[in-house]
Design a protein around this nucleic acid. Structure first.
Lengths: 218, 218
DNA sequence: AAATAAATTTAGACAAGACTAAAAAATGGA
DNA sequence: TCCATTTTTTAGTCTTGTCTAAATTTATTT
């Protein structure tokens, strides 16, 4: 249907639309894709001709219905494969990204339908991100950043914003993982660090950590 | 490491080397790759520069050690994925080829090592073809074509030579599958057809069938 | 409202991998 | 052996996706 490159651009635009709601800028997309702005312009023109994006010169780019549906399909595949790698093939959550990045482009309706069934129709990937269902619907959940909790508040760790291997390994090292309960003991105004209770042990974490960890408080 | 195209050429050369032991001709490779002879010449030059094949103009092409090892690695991945699709994802043996053709190019040592383990280190794919182990060794087995059996001989069906969907579906329709016992009842010299006993029921098959079904007689 | 700076697009080039048409080498029959 | 046919290679072109450098548009500053 669409080329590997086109699919990767659609996915990148989808992710950037959360930040750039008025339209994703060429430079932002270039940075995300690790390429040059001129290359982005070329590709965006092509995506526009294929009705995958809405594009007007100098105005940034937005996904069309078709583009969004395609992007969601790729994200669905990516996240299902991540579950497979962790649940079935003993991958750690910091090892799955690059492989899933390849697997997400495999074209087969039946494959993804059966994989979903094989995995028991999972709702979230190993990083806590929601997996769109076959119709493209995400399960939404009320999650907040750990950084936004007040002193004394507690909640369950449900996801990560940054899913880089470095961050995930840091979490592993400090025994923080999805499903665990965290309570805010102190907050330091000066550097935004906080002291938390994680499974009974106290841990001081920087704002870089608290701003990348999602908590469900309800 | 190598491009998708390069990997596909290596695989094609590997398969053709069984027939063209003195060197795979440009035209044979073009037909296998469904491309033009001139494109083959271009690619073969590139593979030669990368030390993947031995090539002398007008002399055909052979795999080098590196080329053969690479090809075997791809075949290993292809066949392991086929087992996965059939054993875990409810694919029929006539549905796996195109998907495995895509999956075989996924790059990840860990993925294939863990997949192999997950599947219980299978020795054969769903068509009866041997799966090379991590060291690239095939398990060899003494199999003969059904066409070469004499009247009265019997054996176990262990593989197919032609693994096209059409042939596999024909076998399904006639209740022939790997592991089943077949006995030759009659052979017709004129058209090389034969009458066989398959699981108690008699079946007349053309030479096109008997020459594409492998039997173990030992 | 200029003038400068930043962002974006255009123009032209390149590599990979394919194609067509034409040239060159190998093969096989008389 | 020589000619005709087949096979293979070469030459030149095309598409995709990228790049650099230059031009253009938008944004910012004074």
């Amino acid at each position: 249907m669409f080329s590997l490159s086109e699919e990767n651009y659609l996915k990148a635009i989808f992710h950037l639309e959360h930040t750039y709601k008025e339209g994703v800028s060429t430079n932002a997309l270039a940075e995300e894709m690790e390429t040059k702005a001129s290359s982005v312009t070329d590709m965006v023109k092509k995506l526009s001709e294929k009705k995958l994006v809405i594009y007007k010169k100098y105005q940034g780019v937005k996904l069309s219905k078709l583009g969004r549906d395609t992007a969601i399909g790729i994200i669905r595949k990516h996240r299902l494969w991540e579950v497979f790698l962790v649940e079935k093939l003993n991958f750690n959550w910091d090892e799955v990204h690059d492989v899933a990045e390849q697997l997400e482009h495999i074209r087969s309706e039946k494959l993804i339908k059966e994989l979903d069934k094989f995995l028991g129709f999972p709702k979230r990937d190993p990083h806590g991100d929601p997996i769109p269902d076959a119709g493209g619907n995400f399960s939404v959940s009320n999650k907040t950043l750990l950084a936004d909790l007040s002193i004394g508040e507690a909640g369950i760790c449900v996801g990560v914003k940054d899913s880089s291997a470095a961050f995930l390994q840091f979490l592993d090292k400090n025994n923080i993982s999805l499903g665990k309960k965290i309570k805010v003991l102190e907050k330091e105004d000066f550097d935004k660090s906080m002291l938390i209770d994680n499974q009974g042990s106290n841990l001081r974490i920087s704002s870089l950590i608290s701003e990348n960890l999602y908590i469900k408080t309800s």
